[in-house]
Design a binder for these strands. Structure first.
Lengths: 257, 257
DNA sequence: ACAATAGTGTCTATGAGACATTATCTC
DNA sequence: GAGATAATGTCTCATAGACACTATTGT
């Protein structure tokens, strides 16, 4: 791409109107866990949340919006999203994926803005130690369903809805569930996470299927210590449960067989 | 989005450098069929092709590139792609899907261009009656593998590779195979199309699996005439084969069960 | 008869799905 | 022992996968 030196002087960049900006907007998902009872051990209640920020100036002043910001000419859009994520939540190193572009004319009263939407999956623990720098009060986590009922700035309702659909789909077809889980987890935890994102997902014999080697073989594996002993946890139950971890195996899905 | 009337006079759009353009580039895939022998009936040889155009001016003059063009401020990026597709190939009404953005600084010597990539799936028959308006010689179909070995303009090698990966994945997980098939088709035709796009796909008992109702139930259905009689075709074989059509059912895939 | 593709019969091993039962540990 | 979650036993039916075999029709 070293052709710019050949640029003919007749070439004009500004022959047509050009966009006024290329923002990246980020739908940050996290799953919050709340204890169900103080006394007894049990699986916590999980809820899928979205991070929103309150707009301080025109346009949509006072309304809630997705975090994001404008791309610079020295970075790719993906780098923009990473930078904004870092600035917004001081989180680094999380799952961040591009999923769509929003370009309807008139979607931003400031001008011709072509917005690039990402979703990020963040573990609640990573979010807790975020700096409250940008005023604690103008950033909040909102349950997804509630966010969709709010009247968000710009076309952010659409963006959140699209992101949610994408994450739901990926939750069942890829191993992104791992982003919401500790490295070692129990089968019930995994099941809970999946159900929190995709409530329709119901598998009576979940342990059976995911355990039954040979078929789903290799998505997850038992955690063993240096002596080959099974490692278990009783965080969420009286009886200790086997811990598992994801392998890097991703099964190849097909509707044809 | 009727807030523009509230724009404060202090607001300046041009505080930062803005992009010089937002092009849409389209990877147009088609499957060409060539008879294997003039005499006998047999399944044609199929090949996955990509449409390329030769660049007429700076930059990358004389190199081959993807069709595409710049977005206007009165249309969404998707509409840009539709329009360019129509202008380029005079095809309307085909499968067109957005799949990624390309924004690496320096990817376009003309300036800061954030490109939006689409892929289109076109039936060979639709492509045949395209106008040779823009000089027949500067547009051509190239087998995908060959296109990837060429040195295309801009970062179009990357775009083609990404598009191919996406289409391969969707070929197995959605029913886009229908875009390359006539409305009524035989099981072998379907199998050929899948294998043309995804050569690794090998299913010995393909007919069995796709036919064996109850499991894959409802992706495709037998074509019957008004009397309930099976409709068959012997286009590609001595013995007539049952014709099928896709239903609008899309199975829900999951790695968990 | 041969070529070429379409489609079935049959057998086996494995998986899904449902439900009851047993295991382990805390309070 | 009650309560809670983890995990296995067992039975049935559906499916995958392999492979041999039969079917149909143009040349």
């Amino acid at each position: 791409m070293d052709e710019s030196k050949d640029r003919p002087s007749s070439y004009s960049v500004a022959a047509f109107r050009t966009p006024d900006g290329a923002p990246a907007d980020i739908v940050i998902f996290t799953i919050t866990s709340t204890e169900r009872r103080a006394v007894k051990k049990s699986l916590p209640l999980m809820e899928l949340q979205v991070l929103l920020i309150e707009r301080k100036g025109w346009p949509f002043e006072g309304q809630w919006a997705l975090p994001g910001g404008f791309s610079k000419d020295t970075e790719s859009i993906y780098e923009t999203a990473r930078r904004e994520l870092q600035e917004e939540t001081s989180i680094d190193d999380v799952h961040l994926a591009y999923f769509n572009v929003y370009s309807e004319p008139g979607r931003d009263p400031r001008g011709w803005m072509i917005s690039h939407a990402f979703f990020a999956l963040v573990n609640e623990r990573q979010l807790l130690n975020r700096k409250a720098a940008d005023d604690a009060s103008d950033v909040k986590l909102v349950p997804v369903e509630e966010a969709l009922r709010m009247r968000l700035a710009f076309d952010h309702n659409t963006i959140v809805a699209d992101a949610l659909e994408r994450v739901r789909h990926q939750m069942l077809t890829t191993t992104i569930a791992k982003e919401f889980l500790p490295e070692k987890f129990t089968i019930s935890e995994l099941y809970q996470v999946i159900r929190t994102v995709v409530p329709e997902f119901e598998e009576s014999n979940f342990i059976r299927k995911i355990t039954a080697t040979q078929s789903r073989n290799g998505i997850i594996e038992e955690v063993r210590d240096e002596h080959g002993q099974s490692v278990t946890s009783n965080r969420y139950s009286q009886r200790a449960a086997q811990l598992y971890r994801f392998t890097d195996y991703q099964p190849r899905l097909s509707i044809y067989g």
